[in-house]
Write a protein that binds this DNA or RNA. Structure first.
Length: 470
RNA sequence: GGCGCCUUGGCGGAGUAGUUACGCAGCGGUCUGCAAAACCGCGUACACGGGUGCAAAUCCCGUAGGUGCCUCCA
């Protein structure tokens, strides 16, 4: 497949080192608070990447890290740790906070129908690996020690500015942050931070340099190496990571191993809400709970994510979510035809096997062309248009089933479940049909309401009712 | 100050030179116990000003507005 590559600034074919295996590392969440819709947008897009690789016959090995140790709130010496901050806010230890939100995140992955990553390593479970990598860097002469910790000397890594196309001369040091005057270069960053003297942190570990905690970037270098090797096929993360976090990861990993760190870099753009970026201060940190409280399904949310391209700055709004929910109902009604006897209109051509095959090919091509999900949904909508309820030929049988399986495999929208209906519900449907034949409208309407309250949508046709689960 | 990106119909959102993208919402009609659905039809979009081309939403220059990063951030 072809995917935009931040490293080369163009769309490149993905060429795995050991095809059909593809190694993928994703910068995961820092578990100090509830993730908002913007976080989930990003992660859903990596799930889509993995699903696409699978569908095209490759064997992805996907690792997403869980950052459960402090990234500092600011780069200044008095920086406060996010986890420690969260802990103070909630009257818990940093460990409790990390556990709670880590569990919540894992639950979210399931609720949103993610493929399960092969590994979800936590930073706190990999202290030895991180310390070892820092030692390697020290032995190779890439580090120096100052009052508050061990730092990476970026001037020793000449390619440092290349990845993010940074103009180091022109960057305004300390534009918004106090400068650490002990640092040799403005872009130098901490590998190991020493605990402040006389202060007991919730999270701290012994190290060759003293008691402290790992820097903000070393965990990704250490854990990706452990699980996926020195060179990754694909490394993914938010667009915001390009200038600092990923530049630093490259510097650390390539200095330590002497090999290229990742051949392909995928970055997702951020979303806006009311034309603003998501920020706690703006009060627009919408969560999955908010979505469900308004009566929208998480499948509808996933569809909303797919409606825009991962590299564009997309927008989230309740109106858009409403539109996605309505669109999803159409897909569900289409999918549920699979198990229903449908009389089609002789005047129109029924859905043909060829149409299903053509659609699947077109969708595969769109996905493999830099994950063009809007194009994918266009193709799916086109097919639904052809397969209106009077137009499905049951002879397509197995082809229809396998088409739906394909759609669910790549999009994760659970369309297969649209035809899940219990025997009890089936009986109610039959009872409603009998009531309609007897022109007992009030009873028929009662039964319809009963089914709708259970998530069963009903559409009457001249040849009987059809239904779908939404 | 530096480095980027964006501006498409009511909303969302593809498309990078030459056909209606598509979806949601809306409008008119057929059908209909009701509600839907289905079917037929409707909108003639591409920030503004120049330029190049037979041809530009699509390339180039400029203007305006917006926005991202340079700090933890998806």
């Amino acid at each position: 497949m072809r995917l935009y590559n931040t490293l080369t600034k163009q769309i490149d074919e993905i060429v795995p080192l050991q095809a059909p295996n593809v190694t993928i590392y994703t910068c995961g969440p820092t578990v100090y608070d509830y993730p908002h819709v913007g976080n989930w947008f990003t992660f859903i897009r990596y799930d889509l990447l993995v699903r696409t690789l699978k569908a095209s016959g490759q064997t992805p090995k996907w690792v997403m890290n869980i950052t459960d140790v402090g990234h500092l709130v600011s780069d200044a010496d008095d920086g406060e740790d996010k986890l420690e901050k969260g802990a103070k806010r909630e009257g818990k230890t940093a460990w409790d906070v990390a556990k709670f939100y880590g569990d919540y995140f894992n639950e979210g992955l399931k609720r949103l129908n993610f493929l399960e990553p092969d590994y979800l390593p936590k930073a706190t479970d990999h202290l030895p690996e991180q310390i070892e990598m820092i030692q390697t860097l020290q032995e190779k002469g890439f580090t120096y020690l100052i009052d508050d910790g061990v730092y990476y000397d970026t001037s020793k890594f000449p390619k440092y500015a290349d990845f993010a196309q940074l103009d180091l001369e022109e960057q305004q040091a300390g534009a918004r942050v106090e400068v650490n005057h002990q640092k040799r270069n403005q872009t130098d960053f901490a590998l190991w931070k020493l605990s402040p003297q006389g202060q007991q942190r919730d999270m701290e570990w012994d190290s060759p340099w003293g008691k402290g905690f790992p820097g903000w970037h070393i965990e990704c270098s250490a854990m990706s190496r452990k699980y996926l090797g020195d060179t990754l096929d694909i490394h993914s993360g938010g667009i915001d990571h390009i200038p600092v976090h990923h530049s630093n990861e490259i510097a650390q990993s390539e200095a330590a191993t002497g090999k290229p760190f990742a051949n392909h870099w995928m970055h997702t753009n951020h979303i806006l809400i009311n034309d603003e970026k998501i920020a706690k201060s703006a009060g627009n940190g919408i969560t999955l709970e908010d979505i469900e409280a308004k009566g929208y399904s998480l499948e509808a949310f996933r569809l909303h994510v797919l409606e825009s391209h991962y590299r564009s700055q997309s927008k989230f709004s309740w109106d858009s979510l409403e539109a996605a929910q309505n669109r999803l109902r159409g897909y569900q009604a289409f999918a549920a035809l699979r198990y229903q006897t449908v009389v089609y209109d002789e005047a129109r051509h029924p859905l043909q096997y060829e149409s299903l095959a053509t659609s699947q090919i077109a969708i595969t091509e769109a996905l493999e062309n830099d994950l063009n999900t809007p194009k994918v949904l266009f193709e799916l909508s086109e097919l639904c248009e052809q397969a209106t309820l009077r137009n499905v030929d049951n002879n397509t049988g197995d082809a229809f089933v396998s088409y739906l399986q394909f759609i669910d495999a790549v999009l994760g929208l659970n369309l297969g479940q649209a035809s899940d209906i219990s025997n009890v519900q089936k009986d109610i449907l039959d009872a409603r049909e009998r009531a309609r034949l007897a022109k007992d409208w009030s009873k028929a309407d009662d039964l319809r309401r009963q089914l709708e309250s259970q998530g069963i949508g009903i559409r009457d046709t001249q040849h009987g009712a059809i239904w779908f689960r939404s």
